[in-house]
């Protein structure tokens, strides 16, 4: 069986910690850890890479240190950031992605991005003593949205805060995620099956999935949510015209962006280059608020490159 050489683990919590250990022990050469939070005391019973002395330190940093200490040959890349528009380009740098996030909406967005970028992905969820795992091969198998179009709205479902997560159940779920991940690179990939584990009865049920033709994640309705542009298409290339705003600061960056977008027609694309954290944060937010779409966002050192699609809304007022 062939194996991936690199895996990005998104979320280094109850699922991510044991998964990182299994992946490093299993021979992954390069591991990425994307996690914005800091270690809290209440994490320690299930997030098994952390100790009491780590409380307050970014989880990505602690997890990276722990993996490097035990497996010095593994290259570990840490990103103390949340998954979102500014970090989704990271997915394409890895052979596979393992979901260790703790919000359903984030899980769906992560699945969407993996489908769009063609990166094999393993979804995981755990609450109390129940866990779900699903392997996804983009273009070939059902994705989480084929089953759940959206996450439960706040207040409609029992939350992890109410029911908790039993540490060993998260460990079992993570082990299953890694097993499914290995299979995605073999001749008998574990896809189109949602594995549902009930730790109270120690029973795993396999729920068969079908790729839904009108799925918003991977099917015909994908355009409704706005598909990502794969990385090859997000490279401006030598021919593309890029509006270089690296010499400007706020609010001149907003004004120049608006002036460049105003004369364009809906659906037209604009490449933009910005420098500095403030512009990286604020310009995409104001572009979205004005009704346009960010198709790609890449940061290299201090410079951020954006690909913007002009929206139909012409209010275009920078926020």
């Amino acid at each position: 069986m062939s194996r991936p050489s690199s895996v990005l683990v998104v979320g280094a919590g109850g699922l991510g910690c044991p998964a990182l250990i299994e992946l490093a022990a299993g021979g992954i050469e390069r591991l990425g850890i994307l996690e914005p939070d800091r270690v809290e005391l209440t994490n320690l019973h299930r997030q098994i890479l952390y100790r009491e002395a780590d409380v307050g330190i970014p989880k990505a940093e602690v997890a990276g240190r722990a993996i490097r200490a035990r497996w010095p040959d593994v290259t570990v890349e840490t990103f103390a950031e949340a998954f979102g528009p500014s970090t989704q380009h990271l997915l394409a740098r890895y052979d596979a992605v393992l979901d260790g996030t703790d919000r359903f909406e984030t899980k769906l967005l992560l699945a969407d991005a993996c489908v769009d970028l063609g990166v094999p992905f393993v979804f995981g969820g755990v609450i109390a003593h129940e866990a779900q795992v699903l392997g996804v091969l983009p273009g070939r198998s059902a994705c989480p949205r084929c089953l759940f179009d959206e996450g439960p709205p706040p207040g409609t479902e029992a939350t992890c805060a109410e029911l908790g997560i039993l540490g060993p159940i998260a460990g079992i779920a993570a082990a299953r995620q890694v097993e499914v991940l290995w299979s995605l690179f073999g001749s008998a990939p574990l896809v189109d099956v949602l594995s549902v584990y009930d730790g109270r009865s120690d029973v795993t049920r396999e729920v068969r999935l079908r790729k839904a033709p009108d799925c918003q994640g991977c099917g015909a309705a994908r355009t409704r949510r706005g598909a990502l542009v794969p990385p090859a298409e997000t490279d401006p290339g030598a021919e593309a015209e890029i509006l270089d705003l690296t010499g400007l600061v706020c609010p001149a960056t907003f004004v120049a962006t608006r002036r460049a977008l105003d004369p364009l027609s809906a659906g037209d694309h604009l490449w933009l280059r910005l420098a500095g954290d403030e512009a990286k944060r604020n310009v995409p937010a104001s572009v979205r608020a004005a009704g346009h779409r960010i198709l790609a966002q890449k940061t290299d050192g201090r410079v951020t490159t954006l690909l913007i699609e002009r929206g139909t809304d012409s209010k275009g007022t920078p926020s």
Partner: peptide, 25 residues
Amino acid sequence: RFLEGLETSIADGTEISIVPAIAGG
């Protein structure tokens, strides 16, 4: 959803499963 939805007929002695989205991690 791939059968007759909520109107699907059910037979004696069979089983129905409810599968909700699970968010934690």
